[in-house]
Structures are given as structure tokens and as C-alpha cells.
Amino acid sequence: MAKKKVLIVDDEPNIVTALEYLLARSGYEVAVAEDGEAALAAVERERPDLVLLDIMMPRLNGYEVCRRLRERPDGGAIKIVILSAKGRDVDVTKGLSLGADLYVTKPFSSTELIARIGALLGDR
């Protein structure tokens, strides 16, 4: 079985580094985009199974990326996990209503995050 691919979208290099390490260790293929526009392009290019999406990013914010992904013809197939420092109820609700499968607030527990990603991708 081919490795599942995860696209990390975040503008904080340190967080990207940490996520890259965690996902690679758990056996996922990893792609990275530094902002919203890059993310949309990467989705076309890389065809990831799951997108880890930050909200506060340059150019195009996470909500917008989420909405556009869901508008695509095959939009339902891709899993979207929002990973954001915005932790208010309104933020969470907004993210989920735009079609995200999961909303995780930063800072996150790495164990829990990996487990949830696994569950979403039906690995375990």
C-alpha cells in the first residue's frame, strides 16, 4: 500500500519542521506549502490525502483555502485538518462549517494529532 500523503500548510518554519518530523516518523509522505495560494497549487500538484491547514497565513488564510478545496469537484475526498492558534469557539465552529474534518488548536499534543490523522485516513 502506497504511503498516504499529507500537505502541511503553515508559515511558521519551526512548526513545519516539527510536523514534518512527526509525520515522516509515522510513515506519511509529506509536502509543504508556506501560504494559502501555495497550498492550493500544492494540492493540484501533490494530490495529498490530507491537508494540515493553519489559519493565519499570508496571502490567503486557512478558512479561504478550506472553502476553495471543498468547492472542487472531488472536494469531498480530501481530508482537511485545521491546525490553528485561534482557539475560540467561533473560530472552531467557523472552520468546521467550512468543511474541515477536524479542528485542532495549537499547541497540540503530537501523539493525539498523529492518532487523529491516522483515524481520518483509516489507517488504524
Binding site: E12, N14, I15, A18, L19, Y21, L22, R25, M56, A85, K86, G87, R88, T105, K106, P107, F108, S109, S110, T111
Partner: peptide
């Protein structure tokens, strides 16, 4: 408030993630 929260959480996220990595692995 949102910004401060974000600004506090962003370094915290990195710190926690790497601490956990180092701790667990």
C-alpha cells in the same frame, strides 16, 4: 487578544512539539 493568543501559542506550539519529540523519541 486573538493576536496575543496567537503569538503566545505559536512559540508554545513549537516548544511543545519539539519537547514531545525529544521526550518520546
Amino acid at each position: 487578544l486573538s493576536t496575543v493568543t496567537h503569538e503566545l501559542r505559536t512559540p508554545l506550539t513549537s516548544i511543545r512539539a519539539f519537547s514531545e519529540i525529544l521526550h518520546q523519541d
